[in-house]
Computed example of a mutant assay.
Amino acid sequence: MRPNGVHLHHGLESGHQHGGELAHPLFDLLSAVQASGSIQRAAASLGASYRHVWGSLKRWESEFGRPLVTWTQGHPAQLTPHAQALLARERLLRARHAPQIAALRADLERLFEYAAGDETPVLELPAVPDLALALLRDAAIQRHGLHLALQPRCSADALAALADGRSPAAAFALPEDARAEPALAAPLAVLGGGGFVVLLVLRRTLGLMAPAQALPGGITAVVEAGVRIVGRPPGSSAEIVWRQLCRREGFAPPPPARIEPTHEAAATAVAQGLADAAFGCEGAAAAQGLAFRPLAHDRLLLAATAEAATGPAFAPLRSALADATWHQALSALPGVERLPAALVT
């Protein structure tokens, strides 16, 4: 075990971080060198001197006992294979934990606002991680006086929290044939029995994502070529849809090379070369610059009890859902279409 442990810090600074953003001087430095191919340009992008950046690289190389950057006169600076692997894994860790990082950041921001006398109301929402919901959270606090506290959950847990009364609202993803899944049938039956309303329905395009030169032609190509594919947690909407698609093609779902909890983490694993392909939403593929082959759809729903949805506590949420700026941001998300709200089926 290393004598130096990881210490996490937070502070109030100008500007805002989003998602899984975390600052660390080593990874900021490696990213800058990788992006620029030059220590001089990396230093300029970081607002530091060449001497400072060079000294930092040497200190980290001494700490690890391995070179991190190769560079000779007249040639671009390049990360060593070890540094490339280190940076890829750090990016994946942040993508994997982005929902929790964002939730903690929002809680800390509320804490500091409370310290300054701000008592903006809070609505806690068990929710499957999704960029559309993150944008809704931003709209709610920026323009509608509501802290929408997204509590990261898998779809089955979020749905169950609403169905059994532990939460007055929840956001969850459902495959198009959701009632055929035993884990979803019971809570959906409760919601379909009355007393609940759907406030938001988004249709999301799902498919295969991979680098353009290696995008599989379909499920058969994935299975027969032995593609290292990223899996999703059992019972998630994406895992259910993938399983259904494989069976329709006459295949058992191939064993995943790794399992990642979100669409964004799955796409990051592929983009960083830690897997060959993944099945997930189009928006996650686009964010990582991956090619995408559409295969299916699912739905993201925000539902609530009828009593809560019409009450005064939900008025800011209803206002945020009608926000024109949020609608514009939503329309820019690849593979996302807003549908009329309806009963959960």
Score class of each variant (00 low, 15 high):
Ile240Gln: 10
Gly207Val: 05
Glu224His: 02
Gly192Asp: 14
Ala238Val: 09
Val201His: 11
Val201Glu: 11
Ile229Met: 09
Thr220Gly: 06
Met209Phe: 06
Phe196Tyr: 15
Gly192Glu: 15
Val222His: 08
Leu188Pro: 02
Ile219Leu: 08
Leu208Cys: 07
Leu215Glu: 02
Gln244Tyr: 03
Ala221Leu: 01
Cys246Gly: 11
Pro187Gln: 10
Gly235Asp: 09
Ser237Gln: 13
Arg204Glu: 13
Val223Asn: 07
Arg228Thr: 02
Pro216His: 08
Gln213Ser: 12
Pro187Lys: 05
Gly207Gln: 05
Arg203Thr: 00
Gln213Tyr: 09
Thr205Ile: 05
Phe196Thr: 14
Thr220Cys: 10
Glu224Gly: 01
Arg203Leu: 13
Val198Ala: 08
Ala252Thr: 10
Leu245Ile: 09
Trp242Gln: 09
Arg243Ile: 03
Ala212Cys: 14
Pro233Met: 15
Phe196Arg: 14
Leu215Arg: 00
Phe251Gln: 02
Ala186Trp: 12
Pro234Phe: 15
Gly218Thr: 01
Gln244Gly: 00
Phe196Met: 14
Arg203Ala: 14
Gly250Glu: 13
Ala252Val: 08
Thr220Ala: 06
Ser237Phe: 07
Gly194Glu: 11
Arg228Gly: 06
Arg204Val: 13
Arg204Ser: 14
Gly195Thr: 15
Pro187Ile: 06
Pro187Gly: 03
Gln244Val: 06
Val223Cys: 03
Gln244Ser: 08
Thr220Arg: 02
Gly226Asp: 04
Gly217Met: 09
Gly250Arg: 11
Ser236Gln: 14
Val198Tyr: 01
Val230Gly: 07
Arg243Ser: 12
Val222Lys: 02
Gln244His: 01
Ala221Ile: 04
